[in-house]
Structures are given as structure tokens and as C-alpha cells.
């Protein structure tokens, strides 16, 4: 029995079905290790509770506590999604360390399928987490005040952003050799980014040097864009600044830039078989 190139996975159907198989396999782990999703959700809920009920009182925002909670929730969504990079990085490192990636690479499957499956499954996973967090938000008083289309646009931005974050994770996950290091690296990078932002506080309450960072930061632009779309309060340092005028555009530009940089880096590293 000789098998020739006609069965290679470079045909379009092969790419799609291979990617779906990898997506399926990545999503399977969620019910099998429920702790992972559970703690991802609990971490976000903890931030909601901490800021809505503990620190929130000290944060001045027009409209009081109710307005602050409506301000906070889109920030929490953006922060949660920023951590998609960590989830993907840890997953990729784990697959590499366990030899799964080697096995995939020795199979006649589409080369791109592993990375496509990994990144796409992250969107589905984060969408599930988003649903739980939105319900939590509703419970603490967050409301969507815009139209349904605007609501969907906001959700779309969040999910597209997940995709961009997933590509950072793909690159990062291949750089480090152990899951523990991956965890450390991801968290030391992601936490500061989400804190020097408008996720928890209006940027004008930050030290002046940090204000521009907090307004241009992709996590901030994402939070701003969704707040604007959903009619949630969103105070800016200066209302005529570019970040205040075009948060959605800026977010899309960020996503394009991140994908343009990290997808080729991640793919190149994956292709470079010398590891």
C-alpha cells in the first residue's frame, strides 16, 4: 500500500477538519478539569466583589455606587479576556512538555491545525466564561443600556480580542519550557497591564505619568469601547483625546497589530522544528 500526496492534509477540507479535531480536543479538557474554568471564573468574581463592595466606595465616579458597578463590569470582562493569553500559553507549554505537539507534528495533518484549533477553542472557552460573568454582573447591578446590536458588537469586540490574546499565548507558550514558568511569566505580564488601565479606576485618578498608558492600553481601549457601546459610564482624562473619541477603532487597531506581530512569531516558532 503506497500512499501518495493526494491524502495529505494540505487540501482545504483537511485543514478545516484537522482544526476542528484540535478544537474538540482542547475543549474536551474543560469538563475533564473543571477546576480550571472554575478558578478562572472565581478569580474574576473575586475582583468584582472586591471592587464593587470593598474598594469601590473609595473610587469617585459620577453617579455613585450604581454607576461604578456599571463602569466596573466591562473592565472585568476586558481583564478576564486579557488572561486568555495566559490560558493559551499554559496549554501550549503543557502540550509541548508532554510530547503531544511532537506527536501532532509527526502526523500527516495540516501544519496550521494545531495553532488554529488552540486559538479558536479559546474564543469558545472565553465566551462561556463571559456568560457566567455577565450573569454575575447583572446580579450586582450592571445593566446594558444600549441597543441589542450594540450589545452584540461589544461582545464581538471582546471575543475578537480573545483571539488576539490567544496568539500572544501561542508565542509565549512555546518560549518557556515548563508550565510553572509559563504561569509566572503570564501573570507578571498580564496583571500590571490590567492594573495600569481604566479597568478598576477612572484614568484621571492615576498618577499623571501613568494616565496616557492607562488610556492607550489595549485592555483600556477594549473596556472603553464596550462601555460606550453598552451605555455604561466611562470617564476619560480628556474627552477630546483620541482614545476617548475612537475607542472601538483603537481596539480594532490593537487587535490587528497584535495578531500581525504574534501570529507570524508563533507560527514561525511552531514551524521551526529545531526544538
Amino acid at each position: 500500500m503506497t500512499v501518495t500526496a493526494d491524502r495529505t492534509a494540505s487540501r482545504p477540507g483537511g485543514v478545516l477538519s484537522d482544526s476542528l479535531v484540535v478544537t474538540w480536543r482542547t475543549l474536551k479538557r474543560i469538563p475533564r478539569i473543571p477546576e480550571l474554568a472554575l478558578f478562572a471564573i472565581l478569580q474574576s468574581i473575586m475582583f468584582v466583589l472586591l471592587f464593587a463592595y470593598v474598594f469601590g466606595g473609595a473610587i469617585q465616579i459620577e453617579g455613585g455606587a450604581q454607576a461604578y458597578r456599571e463602569f466596573l463590569m466591562p473592565g472585568i470582562f476586558a481583564q478576564t479576556i486579557a488572561f486568555a493569553s495566559a490560558t493559551v500559553a499554559i496549554g501550549v507549554t503543557d502540550d509541548m512538555a508532554k510530547g503531544i505537539v511532537d506527536r501532532f507534528r509527526s502526523l500527516p495533518m495540516a501544519r496550521s491545525a494545531y495553532l488554529t484549533g488552540r486559538t479558536v477553542s479559546e474564543i469558545i472557552y472565553q465566551a462561556g466564561i463571559l456568560v457566567v460573568l455577565m450573569l454575575t454582573g447583572l446580579a450586582v447591578g450592571w445593566r446594558v443600556r444600549g441597543g441589542f446590536v450594540d450589545f452584540l458588537l461589544g461582545v464581538g469586540l471582546l471575543l475578537l480580542f480573545t483571539y488576539a490574546m490567544a496568539w500572544i499565548g501561542v508565542w509565549l507558550g512555546q518560549l518557556v519550557r515548563t508550565v510553572e514558568v509559563g504561569q509566572q511569566v503570564s501573570f507578571t505580564v498580564v496583571f500590571p497591564i490590567t492594573f495600569v488601565s481604566n479597568v478598576f479606576v477612572p484614568p484621571d485618578s492615576l498618577p499623571a505619568v501613568l494616565q496616557p498608558i492607562a488610556e492607550w492600553n489595549p485592555v483600556s481601549t477594549l473596556a472603553s469601547a464596550t462601555r460606550d457601546l453598552w451605555g455604561n459610564p466611562n470617564p476619560y482624562v480628556s474627552a477630546d483625546g483620541f482614545p476617548a473619541q475612537h475607542p472601538a477603532l483603537l481596539t480594532v487597531l490593537w487587535m490587528v497589530a497584535i495578531i500581525a506581530v504574534f501570529a507570524p512569531l508563533g507560527v514561525a516558532r511552531y514551524r521551526r522544528t529545531s526544538r
Binding site: T8, F104, A113
Partner: peptide, 25 residues
């Protein structure tokens, strides 16, 4: 079959084999 058994720990034996068979096209 590499030096360290490269199977997906979170899938069943059957699911592992099914997945690799699918990826064999």
C-alpha cells in the same frame, strides 16, 4: 512513539485513538 508517552491525559484511550486517526486523515 516518543520517549515519553505522548497521549492526551484528559481524553479517554478511545478518544485519543480516534483523534489521532482523524489526524491521519
Amino acid at each position: 512513539s516518543g520517549q515519553y508517552a505522548a497521549v492526551d491525559e484528559n481524553l479517554t484511550g478511545r478518544e485519543n485513538l480516534w483523534m489521532f486517526a482523524r489526524l491521519y486523515q
